[in-house]
């Protein structure tokens, strides 16, 4: 659009001023955000790591210690110290006698408002999801955030069936979300009325994530047991 078509023609000096003000404020604001981000990033990282560890103890009931493992190139798991590659790390939880209780796995996907980050506990012995915790969510307070509190919904993840098929290459039944009150099989996630999108999102995130991780972990359980003893 040229200047002639504008409804209120402004003097060229004036629009220059406007541009100057907007750009100036933009640069100033950007600078302030970057400085705050840089200043707080290490503390936030430390806090998040602590929160993650607490969450691991929540999704794997009865564990005494945890170790982080990273998926190697030959689909095996190697213990790591510190931070691993994103999307390849799982956390093994061990009981009082050093026995493997289960694995805590991080998963994420699109929720209603933003990306949802969750952590769930997988027990290769029972072949089931045994715990669930929302790490990060910006879902609508009072509606979507029921995924963190609704007792009926959380009951889905006390023993969600993720057993493998006969040749142990994939899940027998993929985890799927179903309408509230229509859960019939142990691999279905009973959703919440009034938080349909958020609870379906959790079901789908779990479906995708267990599809990928359950066969990998089940077939390499030895890695966690042998390296956990060291």
């Amino acid at each position: 659009m040229s200047d002639k078509n504008q409804i209120q023609p402004t003097a060229p000096g004036n629009s220059g001023k406007m541009l100057q003000a907007m750009v100036g404020i933009g640069i100033l604001c950007a600078l302030m955000i970057v400085l705050t981000f840089q200043g707080t990033a290490p503390v936030i990282k430390k806090n998040k790591a602590e929160a993650l560890e607490k969450a691991i103890f929540k999704v794997l009931p009865g564990i005494e210690k945890t170790k982080a493992f990273q998926l190697g190139q030959n689909d095996n798991f190697v213990q790591i110290e510190g931070e691993g590659e994103e999307g390849k790390v799982v956390y093994a939880g061990y009981g009082a006698n050093g026995e493997l209780v289960g694995l805590a796995i991080e998963a994420s996907g699109q929720g209603y408002a933003d990306i949802l980050r969750i952590l769930y506990g997988y027990d290769p012995g029972k072949q089931a999801v045994i715990g669930f915790y929302v790490l990060e969510s910006k879902e609508t307070p009072g509606l979507g955030d029921k995924i963190e509190k609704d007792p009926n919904f959380l009951a889905n993840f006390e023993a969600l069936d993720v057993s493998l098929n006969e040749d142990q290459s994939a899940l027998k039944n993929k985890v799927v979300p179903v309408k509230s009150g229509e859960k019939e099989n142990p691999w279905e996630v009973d959703c919440i009325t009034g938080a349909t999108i958020s609870s379906r999102a959790i079901g789908n995130i779990l479906g995708e994530s267990t599809q990928r991780w359950a066969p990998l972990i089940y077939n390499n359980q030895e890695d966690f047991v042998t390296q956990g003893e060291q």
């Binding site: 302030m32 955000i33 705050t36 981000f37 707080t40 503390v43 936030i44 806090n47 998040k48 602590e50 929160a51």
Partner: peptide, 12 residues
């Protein structure tokens, strides 16, 4: 945005 970062740094 700055407050958001600061609160995250104070307590998750």
């Amino acid at each position: 945005t700055m407050t958001d970062y600061i609160i995250q740094a104070i307590s998750v």
